[in-house]
Design a protein around this nucleic acid. Structure first.
Lengths: 351, 351
DNA sequence: AGTGCAAATGTCAACGCTGTCATCATGCTC
DNA sequence: GAGCATGATGACAGCGTTGACATTTGCACT
């Protein structure tokens, strides 16, 4: 990395480290009271046209910028920032969700503040606590800790809490989740219809709600065609790419290898694809979560709109701000199977 | 989308809409002055052990949570939020940058607040203004407007401004950019070494710094092998996927079609790949910006670490907070050509 | 018992803003 | 010309916190 030092020009010299102008400063310059300046800035109350102009000009001269900290404090410490607590920032899934949230909130003048727990359950409460001290207006979160009951007090104080992707535990809160179960069911059914019975399932451990639901959907769909024991096909390692890759090799090395593989999330998909190469004519593959270029790579996936998750969550926040005491709601975002080739291999039914 | 209403349980009933506890409330309950409570909460000053315990217990009972708005106001309106103003949240590139920023800032107790201009130059100043009213501690931005001189006053007030991916215009500010020129040069050189002379260049219009630099790198590399006029090969449409796709068809339909194509950014890559299918044995292809699965798709790209952009930018902020008056710095993040197959086609030199 | 000193606690004001209420000038009505 | 509504402005307090400074308490030492 190279680093260039541009020499400081005259313009860059910070001169007198001038202080930030306040209402009082502007008032002094314009020859009016701070309150009158406030009226001009807020556009409230009656101010004579001449005064208004003098004030505005003074404000411009002093580069006045109202202090929202003070304003918010004055108004009962109600801010217009909404926090989104996310597990892992590098997962594109969450970013699309964040994008959906940001857009929806921005329409209503709210800003999104992002904080990450780094997928560490222990740090969740600490992070949330920090945000609450900032008096965020609402809390959007992908719960990762085993228990969110610590938020009960805050909820009673009227801070909306909306959980994303997974419901809260031990806390009554709104939530937005995916149709995990039925989505996975659709994927597996499409395979069983094509004759597959030996279907590998590569995913993270089923502790998380989403993975659990998907696993159940997988089992259910196989049960429907009479397969009762799927344990040999289930590989629930901590599925980041590499370990998923290994799981696949593992599965293919069985004496009686699977004819199809399902990935339970995008990380797992990535690993599976690496392991399989492009040989979807030998082993069918369907992933959960869509991704960039899955399209041109011809990968079939269970897809949904991550931004929609965010939008709906943001809407829940907004409606909760209007109606703090309504019953909790859970919204499910639909998922659908997109067939692009990798999952279309037909096999003749055994026996 | 289905919506389930869970009936409100007894627990959900918000009961008395209790107010938020303050230092005074806690003090009243513990039988001490607000100041003593403050001392306990801050862990500063001497407090008798017994008092400390009484205060802490009272704070727990009342679910006291210090009001950082008030604290920050008291302390000269210095917050610990840093704003990141981004053009388009849905571009994975920016996510990764944001992730880098967030991680680095979090280490120093700073939070990142995200705001988007939706790639609209006109809204940049408005968005930034809103953030400054919140008294953000520093400003990280991907400049999109033609002029950032409106930030001069704020800079003088000591707010660090760091521009990402493109330098600021008409404003002296730190910045972190990519080695766009040399990166592109490397890519094109690898093609010219393989005999290519007719090299298509698909990118967005060259108004933006990055695209301009990349275009210049492309031209320079061709100039090195004696190609002086590249205008027939340049397709600088507003390169989202579809229009890039069209540009490629356009190029291939020339009587004398290019033997290689370069994409100037990830959106363009996406379009080019769609248009070319997988026929990299007929036309070589190198993209700028890496992406998920470029790897297994065998796409050669000029890559770099987007998170590193964010990290370095965050570090500039931190060092600027310590040293407000040093000369402005520009950091360049290295780029490198990653050969994966799509750009390896050799052609016999014409003539 | 008197002095000195540190530990423990409290009082007060101010950070910047705005809602409430008060004041004052103006112009109109009857 | 007294009475009154209206418009324009200002004084003041307080949002929750904490630094500066003041006061009180306890205890060791002469």
């Amino acid at each position: 990395m190279t680093e260039t030092e541009t020499e400081a020009s005259a313009l860059a010299a910070p001169g007198t480290p001038q202080a930030r102008a306040t209402l009082a400063d502007v008032g002094r310059l314009a020859g009016v009271s701070p309150k009158t300046v406030s009226r001009v800035i807020l556009g409230s109350g009656n101010v004579a046209e001449g005064t208004r102009e003098r004030v505005l000009s003074a404000a411009r001269t002093l580069r006045f910028r109202p202090n929202h900290l003070a304003r918010n404090l004055r108004h009962g410490s109600v801010t217009n920032t909404v926090a989104f607590v996310i597990g892992d920032l590098t997962n594109p899934f969450y970013f699309l969700v964040a994008a959906g949230i940001e857009r929806e909130l921005a329409k209503h003048g709210l800003m999104m503040i992002l904080a990450s727990t780094d997928d560490d359950p222990a740090s969740e409460e600490r992070v949330v606590e920090t945000l609450l001290k900032q008096r965020v207006r609402a809390l959007l979160m992908v719960p990762i800790a085993a228990d969110q009951s610590y938020l009960e007090g805050e909820r009673q104080l009227g801070t909306p809490v909306v959980c994303i992707d997974r419901p809260a535990r031990n806390l009554i809160a709104d939530s937005v989740v995916l149709e995990n179960f039925t989505g996975m069911q659709k994927a597996v059914r499409s395979l069983t219809r094509a004759g597959h019975r030996k279907i590998g399932f590569v995913c993270s451990p089923a502790e998380l709600y989403t993975h659990q639901q998907r696993l159940l959907g997988y089992r259910q769909a196989l049960l429907e065609v009479g397969v009762t024991d799927t344990s040999r096909w289930e590989r629930l390692e901590d599925a980041d790419g590499p370990s998923a890759e290994e799981s696949v090799r593992d599965l293919l090395a069985l004496e009686d290898p699977p004819t199809a593989i399902i990935a339970g999330n995008n990380r797992a998909s990535s690993g599976v694809i690496h392991a399989l190469g492009n040989r979807f004519d030998k082993v069918a593959f369907v992933g959960f979560d869509d991704f960039e270029l899955a399209d041109s790579a011809g990968i079939s996936v269970v897809a949904y709109d991550p931004a929609e998750l965010g939008r709906q969550a943001a809407r829940l926040v907004l409606s909760r701000l209007n109606d703090p005491i309504g019953p909790p709601r859970q919204i499910e975002i639909p998922t659908s199977l997109i067939s692009r080739g990798s999952g279309e291999l037909t096999v003749t039914l055994p026996q």
